[in-house]
Structure formats: structure tokens, C-alpha cells
Design a binder for these strands. Structure first.
Lengths: 214, 214
DNA sequence: TAGATTGTTAATCGATTAACAATC
DNA sequence: TAGATTGTTAATCGATTAACAATC
């Protein structure tokens, strides 16, 4: 008696953000239907994979017409739990925290940044968009009062674990760690690393592979 | 007659940055040896996977003593091509670009940020660390003269593809796209997305899974 | 020595791809 | 209708885990 959506394979879930983003792009172009073949080409998959994925998501298309883009967007959003609004606090009002608060486009994906905090007295009180930087001391109250779900770590690496511990204590359910280090969380608090350095390393390493095969 | 390192499975390569980071952490603690079991516990893997990965990397340990941490660091660095210095240009001198240039710790992984450019005349001439923001017009010259390998896109989503095109024209071999959208590159130019929104979506989605199973 | 850990082979698992009948 | 595309089943592929002899 599973929860229904639970059975979607991990590999499919990981492709969901790309599918969603793609559906929105094509929709903006005014398109109404897409073929699995087009999706595959544009996202670097095979048509088989796309159709197989859609089967898991119970998405139905029409032969020779393809898949309804509005429908796709709806299913992807739902599968990604975007129906529920997610409340976010950003820890760290440096460049990274500001970038995310101002240009992160988080609203487009139903993430609501409710507060931004920092330890540095010099930046407390700064206005960032329509938020005011608050003291780190307020974190517990903020998480409780604003019913925060997710904490984003946007502080230098050495403080990352301490921030994570405080977020966990404060009661968040998930952590996005943008610091360039690993943080340890208890099992009940999910944590995802957005480590830019990892991406760069993988990039440079596959670039090397490429030059080898030429 | 393969290039030697080429045969490492993708799954292993993707774990390399984590292994490397972990080795450095333990080294800083003054540790000299680790067991596959410890690594597995701390990185969320099984000891089997760790030992299997090490076999691919031709890493040898000693029964009952474990793996030499200095040796590990050396192998991981080498496998990630960190021997070669990688030259980077950052496009976009907004908060995100600044954050990366100032606090990205890229030097620790042999990435050298040689230049940062922007279209906005207001920020051209700004000093960021020991770099001065240059005009976007200079991109081609910079890539050629500084022998840039990698371009980092740190501009708002709507300009991302245009920036990618200019980087490709200028001759970079790899692109790290930090904009919140997808960019299209020809096959010869590798591209990796650092999309924070994707991470957030996956995080919130697995959080939901968690609450279901409680 | 006894017990623990490695390195590697074999078994399992899951994800991708191929193939094809059903459908438009 | 003929040709193209879907939905799904079966085959392939690759990655993870289990198991165990060799080693310390």
C-alpha cells in the first residue's frame, strides 16, 4: 500500500527537473505537442528512455501527435511536489546568498524565500529585494514562525557545518548546501550539495576524455 | 590502445570529487590511513562499492590497516586531471560571479580564474579580488591570450544562451552554466549545469518521500 | 595464531535500449 | 490506406552488492 508516487525510479526523478524546464521552454515557444523523439534529441536521451519514463509517470500521448505540453507540465510539477509551497531561509547574505535571493527565480518553482540571515553585524539590516537581513540569532524563531521547510547554506566552507547544525536544531526538514564542503546531517534531514567545484571537476575531467578521443 | 584512464566507469568518476574532498578532510584531521568501511559510512556508500571503485583506480590498500590517505589524494587528483592547470573566465560580474571569484576556493582545485567580464558598463572596471571586470567585447581576445579552457556562465537566464554562443565562438572547450536555464552547445564543447533550482527540486521531492515513509 | 580487512570474482539489481504490436 | 508514433514487453547493459580466498 505505497503512497502512489513513491515507486518512480530514482533515475526518472532526477530527470524530472529537466523535463519540467523543457516543457516550459517549448510552451513559451507556443508549441502544443511534442514527440518523444524531439524531447530525446534536445535533452540528450533516447526516445525509448523518454517513453519509458513517461510510462512511470502515467503520461499518455497520442500516436503521430505526441504529448500535450500543458499536460506534461502539470504532471512534472505534481511529481516534483510543486503543488506544495516550500518555505526557504537563506543563511549567509554574501554574494552567493544575495544572488540566490535576487535572481534565483525560485518563485517560478514555488520556493518562497521568507528570510535571509547572517552573523556579520555589518550586513544585518541590509535590504535584499523585499527582505531585510536578520541576525543569525533569530534563526530558531524564524524557522518556527515562518514554518520554514528548507535552509540554504550560503556561507564560507569553514562555517558550513555549524550552520547546518543550527538549521537542524531549528527544525528544517531539508538543507541545500552551497558551501564548497560536505555537511553531515541526521537521516531525518535531507541534504543536497550544490557544489560548484564538483561540477567544475567533472567538467574538466570529461573535457580531457574528449581531447583523448580526437 | 586506449588512453589508460579512459576506462573508469562514469559512476566512479562522479564519485571522485567526493572521494577527493573526503581524503583532504581526513588528512587535515591528521589521519594517515582509512578503512573502506569508514569511507563508505561517511559518504553513504557500501564498503564493497568503495573497494570496487578503488580497484578501477588501481588503488591498493593493506589488510587491517586500510588505505594511505596521501596516496588516495594523489590518485584522485590525478584521475580528475588536476595535474593540468585549468584556466577559467567568468562571464557576469553580478553577485554570483563575484561569489565564485572571491570565495569559490577554485585555486584549491587548480582552477585559475584569469578574467571576469560583464556587459554592464557600470561594473566594468570594478575590482574583484585581484581582477578587474572587463568588457564583454574583450572575450575573444581574453580566451585566446589567456588560453582559457573553461567559461563560467553567471548571468541571468535570458542571456545565458547568448553568452554560451559567444564563449563557444571564442574557443573555450568547456562551459559551466550557473544560469537557471539550459544552454545548448556543440558536441565538442562540454557543458555542465550547476543548476541550483534542480537541486532544490530534488531536495524537496525527496523530503516528501521521507514524510510519506514515517 | 585469530580476527579483520583487502582485492576480486560472481550474483543481483536497476536502468537503458531495442523491438514490435496497437493506434492514430 | 500507408506511414509514423505510441505504450509496453523483453533483452541488454552497467552498476552495486555479496561472498570469500588471500593477506596482514
Amino acid at each position: 500500500m505505497g503512497g502512489g508516487r513513491k515507486e518512480i525510479p530514482l533515475a526518472v526523478v532526477q530527470r524530472l527537473p529537466h523535463y519540467l524546464c523543457y516543457a516550459r521552454e517549448r510552451k513559451k515557444e507556443g508549441l502544443q505537442y511534442v514527440f518523444s523523439q524531439e524531447i530525446a534529441r534536445d535533452l540528450g536521451l533516447t526516445p525509448s528512455t523518454v517513453r519509458q519514463d513517461f510510462t512511470h509517470l502515467k503520461i499518455l500521448g497520442v500516436a503521430k501527435r505526441g504529448y500535450d505540453i500543458d499536460g506534461l507540465e502539470r504532471v512534472f510539477s505534481h511529481a516534483l511536489d510543486m503543488d506544495k509551497e516550500k518555505r526557504v531561509v537563506i543563511v549567509g547574505a554574501g554574494n552567493l546568498g544575495r544572488a540566490l535571493a535576487l535572481h534565483g527565480n525560485l518563485g517560478r518553482y514555488d520556493f518562497h524565500v521568507r528570510a535571509i540571515v547572517d552573523v556579520n553585524p555589518k550586513v544585518i539590516g541590509d535590504n535584499i529585494g523585499n527582505l531585510t537581513v536578520q541576525s543569525m540569532e533569530c534563526l530558531v524563531d524564524i524557522v518556527r514562525d515562518e514554518r520554514i521547510d528548507i535552509g540554504v547554506i550560503a556561507v564560507p566552507a569553514p562555517s558550513a557545518q555549524e550552520v547546518a547544525d543550527r538549521l537542524i536544531m531549528a527544525g528544517v526538514r531539508g538543507i541545500l548546501n552551497l558551501a564548497f564542503t560536505r555537511v553531515i546531517t541526521p537521516r531525518r534531514v535531507r541534504s543536497v550539495d550544490g557544489r560548484i567545484v564538483s561540477s567544475l571537476l567533472l567538467l574538466s575531467c570529461t573535457m580531457a576524455d574528449q581531447s583523448q578521443s580526437m
